[in-house]
């Protein structure tokens, strides 16, 4: 979309986002921009609101205040939400694969139905994606026949098949054991190298450090810091904040 000032809209933009469940405030005035080409990791302890923020970005939760736009499409506007969703794709913590479809069918469903890509082309692309994550031989397996790490790799392929401008990753390794986590993180590192824009909600601090351009720290629904990765880990930067120091210390111990 073009504005008078030219292209200023290549970003996910959150302004003053509020969200509460009942009397509990989960997000309390979040401002965050993610531009195309960035990898932004969102850290924070459980209950800090980081997953909810992702769920607000893809329209799974209704905002109670503020505004989120993806390339200028407002996710709170039902008509613009469809357009916003075409530009982003989500990978979930619990994979959420369609249990009655093979890996390829999982991946091709939305490209065929939403993007109207011909079936043959969609399937070829799906197989190529599966190949690239080392699952070429398991293309026709059902989710129940795959390990957790394999399922999540299919989940990533399913998101990538939509050719999203932004990849939203919601604690995608939290349900995996260390070995499987490594499988999945390797793929993310690959994606980061190829310039895929990612919003990465995670507990994997060390990994976030290696792939992120920026790190955002949430605490009790508020955005505490938003710093370039190096500054975040510098002793005078994010570490100066006691909540962050405490969080990082705890993460390293676990």
């Amino acid at each position: 979309m073009l504005t008078l000032l030219g292209k200023v809209c290549d970003m996910i933009s959150a302004r003053g986002v509020h969200k509460s469940f009942g009397s509990a405030t989960v997000l309390d005035g979040i401002d965050l921009d993610v531009s195309v080409g960035e990898v932004v990791s969102i850290l924070g302890s459980s209950g800090s609101g980081k997953s909810t923020l992702i769920r607000c970005m893809n329209g799974l939760e209704r905002l109670d205040g503020g505004r989120i736009t993806i390339d200028d499409f407002d996710v709170s506007n039902p008509k613009q939400l469809a357009e916003a969703r075409k530009r982003s794709a989500t990978v979930f913590q619990l994979f959420n694969l369609y249990p009655h479809m093979t890996a390829v069918e999982n991946i091709t469903l939305a490209p065929i139905q939403v993007l109207k890509i011909p079936r043959a082309q969609a399937e070829a692309e799906a197989r190529a994606l599966l190949d690239s994550v080392g699952l070429g031989a398991r293309s026709d397996a059902y989710p129940a026949q795959l390990s957790g790490g394999q399922r999540q790799r299919v989940g990533i392929c399913r998101a990538l098949a939509m050719k999203p401008r932004y990849l939203l990753l919601d604690e995608i390794t939290s349900a995996l054991d260390p070995e499987m986590t490594a499988e999945v993180l390797n793929i993310l590192a690959q994606l980061a190298r190829t310039g895929t824009t990612m919003v990465f909600v995670t507990h994997e601090v060390e990994f976030a450090r290696t792939i992120s351009s920026r790190i955002v720290f949430l605490d009790k629904g508020r955005l505490v810091v938003d710093l370039p990765t190096n500054d975040f880990f510098a002793s005078g930067g994010g570490m100066a904040n006691p909540r962050i120091a405490q969080f990082l210390a705890k993460m390293r111990k676990d």
Binding site: L94, A110, R158, M162
Partner: peptide, 30 residues
């Protein structure tokens, strides 16, 4: 049906009728 599965379908932009036909119906029938 696990709501996560329906959320995955929803965010991928599938329309409600398609979600019902391709995902809800086959899973529920099975």
């Amino acid at each position: 049906i696990d709501t996560g599965i329906l959320e995955a379908a929803e965010v991928s932009g599938l329309s409600k009728p398609v979600i019902f036909r391709k995902i809800v119906m086959p899973i529920a029938l099975r």
